[in-house]
Computed example of a mutant assay.
Amino acid sequence: MIAGSFVVRVDALSRTPASEQLRVQVLGAVQRGDLVAGAQLPPVRQLADELHLAPNTVAKVYRELERDEVVVTRGRNGTSIAPTGVGPERQAQLAALEYAGRVRELGIHSARALEIVAEALGEPSA
């Protein structure tokens, strides 16, 4: 459980690394509004224990989410969803991050992934 009733699940049999599964689920929850600005995430060790992951794996995900400005970490005050996680452009950035993770999971080359986006937007690919 992360915040409220939002539950994270990691499939140990998946070809997708556990860290990527966790990152994508948190991003998706922010996009859908399941996790809103200010929602507190569990401490690294607690979430690692709940998901049967190494604490370093959860810490890595938190660092990546912080780098992407999805969460903010305030030392002993913990990690929470960033207040900037709103607005159309921010939503597009989050969608792009989720898409990039899925594309990597599928093994699609980045150039082809960009062509797919251009086609979806109805724009000619470069």
Rank of each mutant, 00 (worst) to 15 (best):
Q21Y: 09
V44F: 03
V44P: 07
S14H: 12
D49F: 01
T57H: 01
Q31W: 00
V44E: 03
A118C: 11
G75L: 08
A100L: 07
Y99C: 13
V26E: 05
R63H: 01
E105C: 12
A96R: 09
P42C: 01
Q40R: 02
V71P: 01
A96I: 04
A29T: 03
V117H: 11
S5H: 15
R32W: 06
A12L: 13
V7P: 07
L13S: 15
E66I: 03
L106Y: 13
D68S: 00
R74A: 12
M1R: 15
Q31R: 12
A82G: 00
E66W: 01
F6E: 12
L41Q: 02
A95R: 14
A118N: 10
G4I: 15
E98C: 11
A54M: 08
S19D: 14
T79Y: 00
Q46S: 04
G4D: 12
E119K: 08
Q91N: 14
S19F: 10
L35P: 00
L22R: 13
R90T: 11
D11V: 06
G75D: 05
P124W: 07
G101T: 07
R23L: 12
L94H: 05
V10S: 12
V36L: 08
A111F: 06
A126E: 14
A92P: 04
H52E: 04
A92Y: 05
I116M: 07
A100F: 02
L121R: 15
V44Q: 03
V72H: 03
S80K: 07
V86Y: 15
E123N: 01
H109L: 15
L41Y: 06
K60T: 04
A120S: 07
F6S: 14
A96K: 06
E20K: 14
L94Q: 06
G87L: 05
K60C: 00
I2A: 14
L22M: 15
V10P: 13
L41G: 07
R32K: 08
L35N: 01
A54I: 10
G75K: 04
L47A: 00
L22W: 11
R63Y: 00
E105R: 11
G38N: 03
A113Q: 02
Q31N: 04
V26A: 07
S125G: 07
D34E: 08
N56I: 09
